[in-house]
Simulated assay, not measured.
Amino acid sequence: MALHRLAGKPAPRSLLVNIPRLVTSYYSRKPDVTDPAQKVTFGTSGHRGSSFKNSFNEDHVLAVSQAICQFRKSKNITGPLFMGMDTHALSEPALASALEVFAANGMTVMIQEGLGYTPTPVISHAILTYNRSQTSGLADGVVITPSHNPPDNGGLKYNPPHGGPADTETTSFIEDRANDILGEGNKDVRRTPFEKAISSDTTHEYDYIGPYTEDLANILDMEIIAKAGLKIGVDPLGGAALGFWDPIARWFGLDIDVVNRAIDPTFGFMTVDKDGKIRMDCSSPYAMAGLIGLKDNFDIAFGNEYDLDQEVEVEDFDEITSALEAYEAKKALI
């Protein structure tokens, strides 16, 4: 593939997605259940798509959410469901749709305080922390995210009680049942209005930031990191990690400079990837050109994609650029 003329350059306005139109499409457009491209299709533990292509619309989220309720019942999963979302434009509408279904089905749901953003690893941490002391009534989780997919995408991942990505048996159950529900016009979906769902006795705000931040000391020697006096640069890349870096810096006494505090669902702060598209690909030196451009300001820098299940760490900027270019060249040969 030839390198696009905009690769590594700031995204022009002509590439930015129309967010009002995207969200309108989420609610107004209906999938054609006879078209395989518009059905529920689980990849890495979740369904992803775009409301412009009728592959991620409200009907999909309602059907998947009801299928998750039925899966939990079949496996006798009765503990709380830890729920988070990233900063993609479709994530908040999808969270609202899913919560309407979960509340109507009487599920206990834990959401971030103030409808804040929650990275995927934080949901996994909450599940594992809760289940550590449980022999029954285990918790599971849902993350509303299409991961590093482009800004017009939405997604919904299911994490079972072990905290990690769902296995194929689980995803096949949810995918098949969701498509059956879609095919029947979502008549089996139980749903309550969002205002009732968010204020329901089964919906609870939860502090995801504090417990996760404190627990970092159990896997990393934060005292040594603090004593090293490193000047650390962080670009959350508009993602769900934004609210975590300041508490981490305060709690452990780290010199962290968050260089980009923008939450922009158009990804307008990104540089363009090699094919001329905007995406959050931490393996691409073109998408990460902004982070690589910080080479003279910090001892080490981090960039996180939207739901934090990928990151790029930069220490020697010349070496990391060469490594990423070599990685891209190797992929082109496969």
Results as ranks from 00 to 15, higher is better:
residue 25 S to V: 00
residue 25 S to F: 00
residue 26 Y to W: 04
residue 26 Y to K: 02
residue 27 Y to L: 06
residue 27 Y to N: 04
residue 27 Y to C: 03
residue 28 S to G: 02
residue 28 S to P: 00
residue 28 S to Y: 04
residue 28 S to V: 04
residue 29 R to Y: 01
residue 29 R to H: 03
residue 29 R to N: 01
residue 29 R to M: 07
residue 30 K to D: 01
residue 30 K to T: 04
residue 31 P to D: 10
residue 31 P to T: 08
residue 31 P to Y: 05
residue 32 D to A: 03
residue 33 V to Y: 07
residue 34 T to H: 07
residue 35 D to T: 08
residue 35 D to I: 08
residue 35 D to G: 01
residue 35 D to Q: 02
residue 36 P to F: 10
residue 36 P to S: 06
residue 36 P to I: 01
residue 37 A to C: 03
residue 37 A to F: 03
residue 37 A to R: 11
residue 38 Q to T: 05
residue 38 Q to N: 07
residue 38 Q to D: 05
residue 38 Q to V: 10
residue 38 Q to R: 05
residue 39 K to R: 15
residue 39 K to W: 07
residue 40 V to I: 15
residue 41 T to I: 13
residue 41 T to H: 14
residue 42 F to C: 06
residue 42 F to W: 11
residue 42 F to N: 06
residue 42 F to M: 15
residue 42 F to D: 07
residue 43 G to E: 14
residue 43 G to S: 14
residue 43 G to I: 08
residue 44 T to Y: 11
residue 44 T to Q: 12
residue 45 S to Q: 06
residue 45 S to D: 12
residue 45 S to V: 00
residue 45 S to L: 00
residue 46 G to W: 14
residue 46 G to D: 13
residue 47 H to R: 03
residue 47 H to M: 15
residue 47 H to E: 07
residue 47 H to I: 07
residue 47 H to C: 15
residue 48 R to Y: 14
residue 48 R to A: 13
residue 48 R to P: 09
residue 48 R to I: 12
residue 48 R to T: 12
residue 49 G to N: 05
residue 49 G to D: 09
residue 49 G to E: 11
residue 49 G to Q: 11
residue 50 S to N: 06
residue 50 S to T: 13
residue 50 S to M: 12
residue 51 S to M: 13
residue 51 S to W: 15
residue 52 F to I: 09
residue 52 F to Y: 05
residue 53 K to S: 10
residue 53 K to D: 15
residue 53 K to H: 12
residue 53 K to F: 14
residue 54 N to L: 14
residue 54 N to A: 09
residue 55 S to P: 05
residue 55 S to V: 13
residue 55 S to N: 03
residue 55 S to K: 02
residue 56 F to T: 01
residue 56 F to Y: 15
residue 56 F to I: 08
residue 56 F to M: 11
residue 56 F to C: 00
residue 56 F to D: 01
residue 56 F to L: 11
residue 57 N to R: 12
residue 58 E to K: 05
residue 58 E to V: 02
residue 59 D to C: 08
residue 59 D to G: 02
residue 60 H to Q: 10
residue 60 H to P: 12
residue 61 V to T: 06
residue 61 V to N: 02
residue 61 V to R: 00
residue 63 A to Y: 07
residue 63 A to F: 03
residue 63 A to Q: 05
residue 63 A to G: 07
residue 64 V to G: 02
residue 65 S to G: 13
residue 65 S to W: 00
residue 65 S to K: 04
residue 66 Q to A: 03
residue 66 Q to H: 06
residue 66 Q to M: 04
residue 67 A to W: 07
residue 68 I to M: 00
